[in-house]
Design a protein around this nucleic acid. Structure first.
Lengths: 335, 335
DNA sequence: CTGTTAGCGCCTTCAA
DNA sequence: TTGAAGGCGCTAACAG
């Protein structure tokens, strides 16, 4: 069961290696009979083309790099499922780069990605800043490696193909719903200012709150749920106008907030209406079950991969900015 | 900023390409002065060796394949973080294969993995069966691709290097603790019979229960939390001896159980003590916070990668079976 | 429709 | 310590 090469197959099938290569890559260019024969031999010998030789000769790897922040984020992991399923359709492999694990400069890593000869790059990092964005553009322009941003975006420019939902609108809608529910003192629980998508949610929230003439209350948590609890308690210990509505930029933040409030004796949703953002498993495992924006994260992954494939194939992608529809799921933490 | 090749570097540094190759792969074999010079040129030109050519010539890819079941499982995603950090130390890349996305036979995919020329394989799938196990052994023996099983194991044989915790012991300890807490009617909430690790947990539970002369109660859920709720309710509607202790093989199962029971008016932990298994984020986001076995999942990932690296380097791995220590975290669903 | 041939970019003896 | 030369396994013209 030693590794068979294209030569072994060619010899056994009594053809030249070119014919073997053709039956694999351009089947229509080879006579059906010989094709069958070659295919049979290939199966018998368990032949699989060596990916390196193929890549070296064809300049294509049928591999895309997926650059992700922290893998343990539920949304990232789910998106990867969507990407994997779609990639499978095209027989593409996925090379993963986890940013969190970096000791080295990110620009160094991007160079490494280029050196790895991937056909395209999927960038899932939501902390995209100007420098990173420039670097990505260089890679796309100079090295001709197509890039697609998934579930993130760079709002100041749109040279890169992007797939996401309308975070601004979603947050605006959430806030509007809370207002319609009669909530007067609505808080936004967000993260430190570096996540582009959360900045957009913030803007959506602010717009709705301003329109309604309500106060704007923004709390920035670390995203680390273990410290949130303390944080939340402190925050609402002696507030004069009691909080009655909350929008959290992540489900996990919403859930830890709910837990803290219920322990403090507040009733959810009677006293406080709470919306999360993403519809991860956390949302359905919370008690009460969390109302939230449903971000079609798997679809985003799949769509991003599909668009990347198009770009790789040289088909011009007309829409740079692809907004997928979201929905709002009313469960038991609202109304 | 075009892709520089080794020839460009050689020309610019006024040496042969062999010397460039050496300064990169065997620095000690080249005179310090020329080494410096070459290195400088490499930097200037932003040269990175083409991964394909390198792989083709050297027969090494510095890439390992990571085969995972469903990515969205929290434990899998976290393990990947550990793997990524460790892989980074050796400058190894990670090629991901998601089994769930498969339309094709798994054996087909394994052949593909071999064709991709990876230096080693990390297998995270916990549903390992005899056929799969045999296939993996073939790959390791015939194709000489080292394999490490991470957070899973094949209990009937131990030819493959394995990293995990002692699931049997952990479940035994959990059960013992429940018994010590005076629980008499302890249930094990597990999955369908196909997850090896869960079978071991089951054995540990059974042993402890038998030793104490208690009834054994095993509930097999689908693992799908949305159906669990109904399931749980039905189950305990009219039981004569009320359930007073639970061990769930996954945190998410424990949490959905807790939610159901509390809605049914049971008190946790007063009426029912509950232990989970894994210590994922679900555990700290539940109310009350879930007591559970802490599986050092990141360490398992890192250790598995480290052992794989050793195998790849030809250093014999003395211990086939690597058991990492676990601990039990008492939070608020027990006592 | 099929075979021949020249690389792809790099590593690795073998000589010098 | 360095250079020359032969592959690694495959693809892609170019002939036939």
């Amino acid at each position: 069961m030693n590794k068979a090469t294209i030569y072994n197959v060619a010899y056994a099938a009594n053809v030249s290696l070119a014919t073997v290569s053709r039956t694999l890559n351009n089947p229509q260019k080879v006579k059906p009979e010989t094709r069958e024969r070659v295919l049979r031999i290939i199966k018998e010998l368990g032949y699989k083309p060596n990916a390196f030789a193929k890549g070296l000769a064809s300049k294509k790897s049928t591999t895309v790099a997926v650059i992700v922040p922290d893998m343990s984020r539920a949304s990232v992991a789910e998106m990867l499922n969507g990407i994997a399923v779609e990639a499978r359709k095209y027989d593409y492999s996925l090379l993963i780069y986890v940013l969190k694990s970096e000791k080295t400069e990110e620009s160094e890593m991007l160079k490494e990605v280029v050196a790895s000869q991937v056909d395209g790059i999927l960038y899932l990092n939501d902390e995209i800043n100007e420098e990173q964005y420039k670097m990505l553009n260089i890679i796309q322009d100079e090295y001709k490696v197509p890039i697609v941003l998934a579930n993130t975006l760079y709002p100041y420019d749109n040279k890169l193909v992007t797939v996401c939902i309308d975070y601004f609108k979603a947050a605006y809608e959430l806030t509007t719903r809370l207002i319609a529910q009669g909530r007067k003192n609505i808080y936004l629980m967000t993260t430190a200012r570096k996540y582009m998508v959360n900045d957009l949610k913030e803007e959506g929230y602010l717009k709705a709150v301003k329109e309604a003439g309500l106060n704007q209350n923004i709390v920035r948590t670390s995203g680390d749920i273990s410290v949130n609890t303390v944080h939340f308690k402190e925050l609402f210990k002696d507030s004069t106008t009691p909080i009655d509505g909350v929008i959290a930029v992540r489900d996990s933040i919403a859930v830890s907030f709910i837990n803290t409030m219920i322990k403090e004796g507040r009733k959810i949703p009677e006293d406080i209406s709470v919306y999360g953002f993403q519809n991860t498993k956390y949302a359905s495992l919370s008690r009460p079950k969390l109302s939230c924006v449903d971000v079609p994260i798997i679809d985003i992954g799949a769509k991003a991969m599909a668009l990347l494939k198009k770009e790789i194939d040289g088909e011009p992608v007309e829409m740079k900015f692809n907004v997928l529809p979201h929905s709002i799921i009313e469960r038991n933490t609202t109304k």
